[in-house]
């Protein structure tokens, strides 16, 4: 009995969560039992909208309108999904979302690391100003810039093109901040050694610094992908015809347009938008959660 009580303490002495020591075994169990019950209830409530979405997406329009409400689909159908692929070109929107997200991620990884390296490990005139600008623009909301951005993109003749969807998000102050913070922690001696060995800055950057930057690159990559996949206001403004819609734009326009009451179709659409990112989240949850902690705390 004493063994099981002290073992976790020995394993993680510094970050071990504080749990009330248990004077009497049963009362402690009961107390934890209540917390578990409350958490299971809260968890069920949290997941319920997703479950409801998934169940609904397999129901026919008739069943969705039927009362009393049915929980399990009575005659399950794939029609709602089929219509997305055959009538509504969701494959096109999916590819648009994917192309925009992937290019945005690659741009952020490369360009933000480059500035991050300069800011963290080089001395140059204007360094303070550059860093200050990055910090000041960390929280500029998209709603402030989209009007002039649209005017600029129009003047350039880029409305309804991939560059219009991608370029405004190709770099981010947050990315620069993340990369710089991490690179500050790389020992100077390592970089000095490379320089003395005759490596130029580019060699030092690609050969020494970047291979060490796995964790912040993973964080930045995931945050950028998530932001791009769920981005709405700018794609709504910049994509003006179907062939450039991203998934959220397409879903929002169908859900407020002529299909507004076709809930089977809309729920299937929501599944198709949400499923890839939730799958990605569950596969890479450690990095997602690190990312939030990193941006929130540091």
């Amino acid at each position: 009995m004493t063994d099981t009580k002290t073992a976790p303490l020995r394993d993680r002495p510094t970050t071990r969560p504080f749990t009330t020591p248990r004077p009497r075994r049963y009362s402690a169990w009961k107390r934890q039992g209540w917390v578990y019950a409350a958490l299971v209830l809260a968890g069920a409530a949290t997941v319920l909208p997703f479950v409801w979405m998934l169940l609904g997406s397999f129901k026919t329009q008739g069943e969705l309108l039927r009362r009393p409400v049915t929980w399990w689909p009575q005659d399950p159908t794939l029609d709602n999904y089929v219509r997305w692929f055959t009538e509504l070109h969701i494959d096109l929107f999916f590819m648009n979302s994917l192309i925009v997200a992937v290019v945005t991620v690659l741009g952020n990884l490369l360009f933000c690391s480059m500035v991050g390296y300069a800011l963290a490990k080089m001395d140059f005139a204007g360094k303070r100003v550059l860093f200050l600008l990055v910090m000041v623009t960390l929280m500029v909301p998209g709603v402030v810039t989209f009007v002039p951005l649209f005017v600029m993109v129009s003047k350039l003749g880029l409305v309804n093109t991939y560059p219009a969807l991608i370029l405004p998000f190709l770099v981010s102050p947050l990315g620069v901040f993340l990369m710089r913070q991490f690179m500050m922690g790389i020992p100077d001696s390592l970089i000095e050694a490379a320089r003395i060995d005759g490596a130029g800055e580019l060699r030092t950057f690609t050969g020494i610094v970047m291979p060490l930057c796995g964790p912040p690159l993973a964080t930045l990559g995931i945050l950028t992908f998530l932001g791009s996949w769920n981005n709405f206001l700018w794609p709504l403004v910049a994509a003006q015809s179907e062939e450039k819609y991203t998934l959220p734009v397409a879903l929002s326009l169908y859900s407020t347009g002529q299909n507004a009451t076709d809930y089977g179709l809309l729920l299937a659409g929501a599944v198709l938008v949400i499923a890839p990112i939730v799958a990605l989240f569950i596969a890479l949850q450690r990095f997602f959660i690190q990312g939030v902690a990193a941006t929130g705390i540091k």
């Binding site: 968890g43 949290t46 769920n230 879903l251 809309l266 729920l267 659409g269 929501a270 939030v292």
Partner: peptide, 20 residues
């Protein structure tokens, strides 16, 4: 993971679901 899942989802998509 359960409590964090709604955070990663598209607001547009969950708004459609919540409207329902």
């Amino acid at each position: 993971v359960g409590f964090y899942t709604p955070v990663v989802t598209s607001i547009v998509a969950v708004a459609v679901v919540w409207r329902f």
